[in-house]
């Protein structure tokens, strides 16, 4: 008898409760963020458009005919030692050369004790850069020009690390080998 009354009450209550949904909607149609490829900047600063304003405001940013004979830290620009940085996906290699190009110091992330995939990180590049910078200062290089080659995670960190190591960087040059009619490259990776 009592249970009958209770059931009679429960049905209309359930009917009312069905009118509005209290639980969180099922996540079956959840938006899958993984499918959309992330906006990739590639190299830092590459996709920033605002180039003209920089060129207008700042002067003497680019080398001219007589920049070879400018003096930086008591040395002519063309006689400054060069730090070549070879950046790749898997490693970063630094070589300090004098102005004629003979190698004085060479360090790489692998030589610094980073192994396997850790070689190709920006942290490895930075610590290696600091290490080579201290060595270079011991050898008497203080003011240098930097030449970067290749793309990779250590590209910015390497140059930054040289400065953190105490070297004076006069200029940054990109020397990445790019060809518009290259020989046939290796076949594409299959993922």
């Amino acid at each position: 008898m009592l249970s009958n009354v209770r059931n009679a009450l429960r049905i209309p209550v359930a009917g009312v409760a069905r009118l509005f949904q209290t639980s969180v909607p099922r996540t079956s149609e959840k938006f899958d963020h993984k499918r959309i490829p992330q906006e990739d900047e590639g190299v830092q600063g590459e996709k920033v458009v605002d180039l003209d304003s920089v060129l207008k405001t700042k002067q003497n940013l680019f080398p001219t005919l007589d920049s070879d004979n400018q003096i930086f830290g008591g040395i002519l620009y063309k006689q400054l030692p060069i730090c070549n940085i070879r950046v790749s996906h898997n490693n970063t290699i630094f070589t300090m050369t004098d102005a004629s190009g003979s190698v004085k110091i060479i360090r790489s992330c692998g030589m610094e004790g980073f192994k396997n995939t850790k070689k190709g990180t920006n942290i490895a590049a930075q610590t290696t850069a600091i290490a080579i910078a201290t060595k270079a200062i011991d050898r008497g290089f203080k003011t240098i020009r930097v030449r970067v080659q290749g793309l990779g995670p250590g590209r910015l960190a390497a140059v930054k690390g040289l400065q953190m190591g105490g070297l004076d960087i006069v200029s940054i040059t990109d020397n990445t080998h790019v060809s518009w009619n290259p020989p046939r490259p290796r076949k594409a990776r299959r993922l």
Partner: peptide, 17 residues
């Protein structure tokens, strides 16, 4: 090639890129 101004390596790098 970009000259580094006021020891601001970051800006120079970004300009090159």
């Amino acid at each position: 090639t970009v000259f580094v101004k006021n020891n601001n390596v970051d800006d120079a790098c970004r300009l090159v890129n």
